[in-house]
Nucleic acid binder design. Structure first.
Length: 453
RNA sequence: GGCCUCAUCGUCUAACGGUUAGGACAACGGGUUCUCAAUCCGUCAAUCGGGGUCCGAUUCCCCGUGAGGUCACCA
């Protein structure tokens, strides 16, 4: 590898542990990560936990776990709560040189102090260039002398953020567009402490269907919720990357390496993007299809309801029905829905059903259905035990079914095996159940018909 | 309301100022099918409005309109 000329890139993702990592944060982290890796730079994770009231270790732990799950590996990690002495040093310096001052206050709401530290606003016009948005010009006069610390040991966001970016040598600040209004005042602080200005890249917001900023009331917004619903991290990454960015060609599914290689800040959309769960589902289904059998099996077991897992023949059977599950779910949580619809249980035990349900909708006389089932029994008996696969089963039954009307024959056969209206075709079903069980279930159906007269 | 930002199919988006405005998701229709699922094929569908600049604007400029963000002793 040749040495990258831009390898002095240092970027950070700076979540505050006042909640779980949400979808928007994950995308910011992803873009930051991609930019760092593409440039051979350093990716720092900085926990902004200066708000002691709302920050918790539990949230921090969860954010770390989610980053790991998404495989967004960082090179260094810091906690602002462990850096209070550093901020204090700057605070002293700023008060000393007059760029900040202790201010007497009249407390307005609960928790307000009667003395805080404010930044002395020089009231100037700030113009900054943003990689995505372009030039932004703001007059900082109406910002006033904003608060930068409650006291020497309790600095707040704008101050700690700027100091850390400076101390850590951050070259590019990648964050959501909701931070644009914060940028001018942070630049003011930068200038006051003599920090050079980093390059800004404010990425567009993720929107709910009504186009407002994605929030809790829109349903699942935390990445862990998607994990719990059975989404794959690769799918979430791919989906998120395409919210506001694209590789410039028609590819939809990209590998991690391709994302790193093709990522380009300049191609990022300026406007917000609506979070479209349908597309996420599509990505997830694609990635599920690509899963190895082993990994797929692992996740199936994780999401399988215990009622099914408790069947004595579970381990042996579940392996066989993998293909059926694979084509019917778009996320692993759907396995629970399959179970609710009774689409799993019949693989493990003789199903219960109304006898008249065995009749095809065009059939008038259930005695015909019985005759068809008996003939199917006949045909299936001829297949050797070790050749009982879906192809041979179909061969055995197909001509007879065509002759009598496929619905007349195949519906009852399938119903006798599954006991429900919707299921895979009878050939697949029979092969998965095995010859013995298939014969037994069809015999049961015949007996049920006999018993109504 | 002040400040800031944005504007191509329903959604995500593509298009050196010159394309029949392309792709994907969804929707719809069809093939395959006893049912469902899967899969394959196809169809519908967009440049917010008005002015400029230019031989020629989705693209550049201005004005509207609309949408969003933000205005904490949170981050």
């Amino acid at each position: 590898m040749t040495k990258n000329l831009k390898n002095n890139v240092v970027v950070r993702f700076a979540p505050s542990p006042t909640g779980y990592l949400h979808i928007g944060g994950a995308r910011t982290a992803l873009f930051t990560y991609l930019f760092a890796r593409q440039n051979g730079g350093k990716f720092i994770l900085r926990i902004e936990d200066t708000d002691r009231e709302r920050s918790t270790k539990e949230y921090e732990k969860s954010i770390l776990e989610t980053m790991k799950w998404l495989e967004l590996d960082y090179d260094e990690i810091y906690r602002q709560s462990e850096r209070i002495e550093i901020y204090k040093k700057y605070l002293k310096k700023m008060i000393g040189d007059g760029s900040a001052y202790v201010s007497k206050e009249k407390p307005e709401k609960r928790g307000d102090r009667d003395e805080v530290i404010r930044f002395k606003n020089p009231n100037k016009k700030i113009i900054f260039n943003d990689l995505i948005v372009g030039d932004v010009e703001v007059n900082t006069t109406d910002l006033g002398d904003f608060v930068i610390a409650k006291d020497m040991e309790t600095p707040i966001f704008h101050l700690t953020n700027v100091i850390d970016d400076y101390e850590m040598g951050i070259t590019h600040i990648i964050r959501g567009q909701d931070h644009i209004p914060n940028t001018p005042r942070q630049i003011l602080i930068q200038e006051a402490i003599g920090a050079q200005r980093p390059v800004y890249a404010h990425i567009p917001l993720i929107l709910s269907p009504d186009k407002s900023k994605l929030s809790k009331r829109d349903g699942a917004v935390n990445v862990v919720e998607y994990k719990n619903l059975g989404y794959l991290p690769e799918a979430i990454i791919n989906f998120l990357a395409f919210l506001g960015w694209n590789p410039g060609d028609d590819r939809e599914i990209l590998t991690r390496e391709e994302f790193i290689k093709g990522f380009n800040m300049k191609k990022i959309q300026k406007g917000g993007a609506v979070f479209n769960i349908e597309k996420l589902n599509w990505f997830n289904k694609k990635y599920i299809q690509m899963l190895s059998d082993k990994k797929f099996m692992e996740l199936v077991n994780k999401f399988m309801p215990s009622e099914i897992k408790n069947f004595p023949n579970y381990d042996k059977k579940v392996e066989k029905i993998i293909p059926v599950i694979k084509e019917r779910i778009e996320k692993f949580g759907d396995i629970k829905d399959m179970h609710k619809r009774g689409e799993l249980k019949y693989f493990f035990e003789q199903p219960e059903y109304e006898t008249k349900s065995l009749m095809w909708k065009d059939e008038k006389n259930i005695q015909n259905t019985k005759k068809y089932l008996e003939e199917i029994l006949n045909l299936l008996e001829k297949i050797q035990d070790n050749n009982f696969n879906s192809v041979l089963i179909k061969d055995a039954v197909w001509n007879f079914a065509t002759e009598k009307g496929r619905g007349n024959v195949l519906w009852p056969m399938r119903y006798a095996l599954s006991g429900i209206d919707k299921s895979p075709d009878p050939f697949i079903l029979a092969s998965l159940l095995g010859k013995k069980e298939t014969i037994s279930r069809i015999e049961t159906a015949v007996k049920k018909i006999n018993s109504i007269k």
